[in-house]
Nucleic acid binder design. Sequence first.
RNA 1: GCCGACAUAGCUCAGUCGGUAGAGCAACAGUUUCGUAAACUGUAGGUCUGGGGUUCGAUUCCCCAUGUCGGCUCCA
Length: 648
Amino acid sequence: MINVKLPDGSIKELEDNSTVADLAGSISEGLKRNSVAAEVNGQIADIGTILKDNDEVRILTSKDPASLEVLRHSTAHIMAQAVQRLYPNAKVAIGPSIENGFYYDFDIADHQLKPEDLPKIEDEMKKIIKEDQIFAKVDVKDVNAQIEEFKNKGEIYKAELMTEHAEHNPTLYMNKSKDGNIVWNDFCRGPHLPSSKFVKSFKLLTVAGAYWRGNEQNKMLQRIYATAFWTKEELDAHLLRLEEAEKRDHRKLANQLDLFSIREEVGSGLILWHANLSVVRESIEEYWRTEHRKRGYDIVYSPHIAKSQLWDISGHNEHFRENMFYMTVDEQDYVLKPMNCPFHILMYQAKRHSYRNLPIRMAELGTVYRYERSGALHGMTRVRGFTQDDAHIFCTPDQFVSEINRIIDFVDDTLSMFGMKYSVELSTRPDNYVGTLDVWDKAEAGLKEALDSKNISYEINEADGAFYGPKIDFKLTDAIGRTWQGATIQLDFNLPIRFDLKYTDKDGSLQTPVMIHRVIFGTMERFIGILIEHYAGAFPTWLAPEQVTLVPISERHVEYAEEVHSMLRDAGIRVNLDDRSESMNYKIREAQVRKVPYMLVMGDKEVEDKKVAIRSKEKGNLGTVTAEEFLAQILEEVRSKGKTKIGE
RNA sequence: GCCGACAUAGCUCAGUCGGUAGAGCAACAGUUUCGUAAACUGUAGGUCUGGGGUUCGAUUCCCCAUGUCGGCUCCA
């Protein structure tokens, strides 16, 4: 007999070799029927898992969120089986569950999967589900024989994976039909559902290309992305969420709200900022400048091109030649700047520095150009010409930890002000690093110390830092859940040496300063692109291109509206007088569609009382006040950046 | 860059099994002067992304290019 511990702390006695299913059955028939997987000693496992003495077991039903990935992974197996039934030459690669769904990669020599194939595959999957196939886990006893079998069947990807996992007790999952025959199998660690019949609500979404093992040198496979949920309601809700998210896409809103455009005759990845979005940018840049001055930064400007030799010194020609724009004028080679650092470094070098005047914090809204590969371009979030809110901090080795702390605060203050959430990643020393081990260790410890002291949770990307230094990245998420690099803080042990930077220390000796690269927004393009999605195009008043629309009800109210118009405009409010001979309802609707925060309606009553009727985009009619009162309120809303709002 | 899909009026989209296109909104003109999300009538607007090919004839079929979209890869 064995004893197992349940989540409530109780101990259950079972026969030797009992499985999770037996345990479930010993508790209740209903639980046995509904159990789909288990958590055994913290690991997700099949209900067929044989329990040992003292195991801690939590039985998972479909109610448990942890069961969802089991469902999805099993659905992936069913999809792979369906694909192989329909396309017998299909070879399977890998098919994991991912956030919000799963995928499976195939190599199909004689067929290119098309969107129209997806319903056919779905139908085949439904058949497999109906067949009530059992997922049976089997240990691979003779690994070499199994590899040979995979090879004989042409399953070269499975053979390759099995070869690598030969030492890790590989297991197969056999799909058995009702009569006990093995109808399909896959090399897999599991876990899986007890049977295919547990799968009810799934949808195949898209076909895509993906390199085998994510390596560009390898063959490109065909990937099907799909998702699965326990109920149709959850699936429908998920699909609806996707649809809703698409409406927030900054590329869609760009047209609707006249924000920006990208023109073929200008070039890919080059943004035309229309007047509306330029207002948003201008407001953000003004905020940026004010904050930088407050926090001890110097703001500078540098040219957009420099002679190629500068980029030899910096090393960019060597590392990023493929991604830079070159031009030749009067037999002299120039480069369109891909970074601002060399300019800031040269400004640092313009005079001698003492430890007394460090740190020097040099900031610039620097527009740079990089030749990104065409397939990587994406709206405003991945472009070829963009403005970084760049800064470089030159400091002593004793100062960089406190400088990093200051920057983390700066990033958090800024993103919080916009209500944007972020996740943090710390990347450590790669193999091809420059500099010395003790400096790297100190730097990494310093970055960790800074994050820990602020209770910021972060993931560590081992060996993923730049060759010149470790870094902290802040990731932002767009409307459809894609994550983008936003703020970043990077230590650099390389450029100070390449440019031979120095400062005079206390003892009169010349020392090399530590250099920190950092951006807060990342780039104006990407940040504002994500901001559009964050607000779904409805910018808060301090950023709104048009803050107020004046709606005179008929022509006889226009004269009064003009008075209000000039008063608000003179006070710096972005106000638009809609004096077209359209109905009031029409003007209000248009202003709502343009997402204007406030409308002031003026008819006979308002003209007579010298007042305005405020309509908020969000809250509707807010009642009547004098134009002066409204002005005071909106100025306060703008000044506080939305902390106070009219009508709240 | 790679795999795949797509490209029709300013915008959103329909259409042509090969016989050179249509709607709504927007624009413009006129009528209407209105109380919190669309007044009415009319006018104009398209070498159907570009270049080749097949064909009596191509927006439609084929090829190439460009761009966009979904992914992969990359991202100093």
